[in-house]
Design a protein around this nucleic acid. Structure first.
Lengths: 203, 203
DNA sequence: ACACAAGCATACCGATCGGTATGTAATTCG
DNA sequence: CGAATTACATACCGATCGGTATGCTTGTGT
């Protein structure tokens, strides 16, 4: 049960790799930088991960995935009022104060844009997370459809797809403009779209 | 007036660089690959472009910019019914048959996501194009606001920002999923959003 | 306590990176 | 026609890339 030393080293590598990838992308991510940041050496890295690709895949499965799970997926799944929670998440995201989140963008989207056309392993892992995102949003809409909050004529599948796409689009544009003002404005429009799906526009 | 040989060589380099960058991104774009594709050598390349960065910037200014200008910007500017043209462009984009456009994504967005946080020169050139995109859409909405097609309560600036963001978002998600079915579905939702801005929902 | 494996460090490898120095062929201009 | 500049080719450079082979150190099970 003791937190074994080896697990700590592995976590340090994963976290440093995540930061390096988040900053430079996967291909331009430098093994040397990761080792410099952690104070470790190649011996340690290649003991835990056979290749750079496997390191990247582990970052996706264990860091990126967990981040989204914690901040978005679980909160939507466990919410009793999922649409309200969705609107809150959109608001929260739009009011992000950390400049880092604006400058560096969404780790998932960054990796998808870079790696999906280049590597099928990456594509599969990334799309798995993306499809979870879509399905939790779709499920949120679907549940509220039954409760009458969401209009009965809404195509929840298509709407969820668009919400996630537009979400990532807003983050991406804000990242390239490096403007949190535009980001807030953009997410506000997304909020308007979501509200346009509701039967009663109030709240 | 003769098309000088040197201009042809420069164009060949620009085009090959565009393809290589579109495929691998800028950082992972290989000078060697570009030279292999063109059949030229380093002497030719570094005669026309002092550095790889300048080559990339030229690709942005002369290839990417012209592409968008030709297919989107000019058509919106010169349209007498800009909203109708906007809807047509969205439809066209959503019915893209060329798999390449889906697999590789939007060259502008790809470069923005990769390079904007890393290089201020890239950021400036890319954001210039992006702001043109936003302003032509905003202007299209604004003109139709005066003509009564667009509702008077619409914030054209925010709407244009969101339309462009969601547009790029849809392309990006479709690219990572490599699904033109989802892309069509997603662009259809964007179309719905644009129509929700109109006074008369018909057409 | 001892054997053995796991965890990690050091040193090195070939390949590829962007970039440069120099030479030659083609073009332009007086 | 001849000189000078432009347009390109060839060969080479140091730096960095991801990856490996080897050895030492630390922990673990018996």
């Amino acid at each position: 049960m003791v937190t074994r030393q080896t697990d700590l080293t592995r976590d340090k590598l994963l976290q440093a790799a995540f930061n390096e990838i988040h900053l430079h992308g996967f291909q331009a991510a430098s093994i040397a930088n990761i080792l410099r940041d952690t104070g470790l050496t190649k011996g340690a890295l290649y003991h835990h991960f056979p290749t750079k690709q496997e390191l990247g895949l582990a970052v996706i499965d264990e860091v990126v995935s967990e981040l989204l799970e914690k901040w978005i997926f679980s909160r939507l799944r466990e919410s009793g009022k999922p649409v309200q929670t969705l609107l809150k998440l959109i608001d929260e995201s739009g009011r992000k104060t950390e400049l880092e989140a604006i400058v560096l963008g969404c780790p998932l989207n960054n990796l998808m844009q870079e790696m999906s056309p280049l590597d099928d392993e990456f594509k599969a892992r990334l799309n798995r997370i993306l499809s979870i995102w879509q399905s939790v949003v779709e499920d949120a809409l679907q549940r509220e459809k039954k409760s009458g909050v969401v209009r009965s004529d809404v195509d929840c599948h298509a709407a969820a797809l668009f919400i996630v796409s537009a979400w990532e689009g807003c983050v991406g544009i804000a990242k390239s403009q490096q403007s949190m003002k535009n980001f807030s404005l953009c997410m506000k429009q997304l909020r308007n779209y979501v509200q346009s799906l509701l039967a009663v526009q109030a709240k």
